[in-house]
Every structure is written in structure tokens, then in C-alpha cells.
């Protein structure tokens, strides 16, 4: 330590004013022009390089609207007054997604032709809720959120009911508008 300190006074004089002849903006004349040109070139180059860097850094996968209509099979397969667990493949997937390109939802057939499609993700923090047909409740294993069969909040920490996917029937198929991991904030 003491050695180091003994050396500092000698270097400090240089460090305090490393360039006695320098002026603001890198000097005048040719030197000033070179400095200005260098600054400009670096700024423009850096800005250009930043385009792909920032694009990928912010979001390599997000399309303008990640949701697509996904078929869950014949609408007539769903029996009234029943809630079933249905798997589907996410519309946006890369070759390296593995099992994570799948997702699932709960389809509740209120009456023939009338459905509710719930995300499996708890509205509290996204854990997978499980449907219990006997008590007609959805329960979350993480922090104990509970929902009624119509998706409304029954108890626990969730701030709202279950997330619902939009649905429609096309050619007798039940389709849901899905692709984005459901969250408290609506789509992008």
C-alpha cells in the first residue's frame, strides 16, 4: 500500500491534466476537422450497428401480434356442463423450443355452442391451475389461488378471475385466439 501511495504523486500531475495543449472540440483547423470527422463517423457507425443489436436484445421472437386462431378440435366433442383440459401447439415456435412449444387450456362447454376457454396460468403469478371436476373449482399449487367453474376468483391472492381466450367456431371446429403467454396486461 505504501509503495503504491509513494508513486501516486508522480503520476497524479499527469493524470490531472493529461493533455495540456488540447482544447475543447479537439483543436482547430485540420486537427479539429479530423476530431469532428472521427466523432461523426463513430456516431453514425455506432448507430447503424445498434439497429440489429437493440432489435435482437429487446425481442428476438415477438411478432407484431403473436396470437393466432388455433383449432382445438370439433366443437361437438365438448360435452355440455363439462370442463376439459386441452393441449395445443403455440403458433410461434422456433426449432429449439422442445416441449415448450406446447401449451394447454381449459375448455368449459356451458351449453352446446357456448364456451369459455381459460388459460392454465393463474392470474396471480402464472402457475398452472388444476381443474377439480368434483368440487367445480380451479386450484393453483403455488400460492393457493382458487377459482369457480366460470373462472371467477373464489379465494386466495389472485387479483382477478382466470384469463380467458377469445374463441370462435369455424367449420364446426372450436378455435381459440392464443399464442401469447397470458398476463395481467393485455396483448402487445
Amino acid at each position: 500500500m505504501s509503495d503504491h501511495e509513494a508513486q501516486t504523486p508522480a503520476t497524479e500531475g499527469d493524470a490531472a491534466n493529461p493533455c495540456e495543449n488540447c482544447e475543447a472540440n479537439g483543436g482547430k483547423g485540420r486537427r479539429g476537422f479530423l476530431f469532428a470527422a472521427g466523432t461523426t463517423l463513430l456516431t453514425v457507425g455506432g448507430g447503424l450497428a445498434a439497429v440489429p443489436i437493440v432489435t435482437v436484445a429487446i425481442d428476438p421472437g415477438e411478432a407484431p401480434n403473436p396470437n393466432r386462431w388455433i383449432s382445438l378440435g370439433k366443437a361437438s366433442n365438448f360435452k355440455p356442463d363439462q370442463t376439459v383440459f386441452v393441449k395445443f401447439i403455440m403458433p410461434w415456435s422456433s426449432p429449439t423450443d422442445g416441449e415448450t412449444n406446447q401449451n394447454a387450456c381449459y375448455v368449459r362447454c356451458v351449453e352446446p355452442g357456448k364456451f369459455q376457454v381459460f388459460a392454465i396460468n393463474c392470474a396471480h403469478l402464472g402457475c398452472p391451475v388444476e381443474w377439480f371436476a368434483q368440487s367445480r373449482l380451479f386450484m393453483c399449487p403455488c400460492h393457493g389461488g382458487v377459482y369457480y367453474e366460470d373462472g371467477s376468483r373464489a379465494s386466495g391472492p389472485p387479483p382477478r378471475g382466470l384469463f380467458e381466450y377469445e374463441w370462435r367456431i369455424t367449420d364446426g371446429n372450436l378455435e381459440v385466439f392464443a399464442g401469447r403467454l397470458p398476463g395481467l396486461q393485455e396483448g402487445p
Partner: peptide
Amino acid sequence: RAIVLGGPDISGA
């Protein structure tokens, strides 16, 4: 969230 997950859901990205 998109920055964290690298997309609209949890995936390879």
C-alpha cells in the same frame, strides 16, 4: 416481459 422472455411466451429463446 418480452425482453425477459425473448418473445411472447416461454420458449427456446
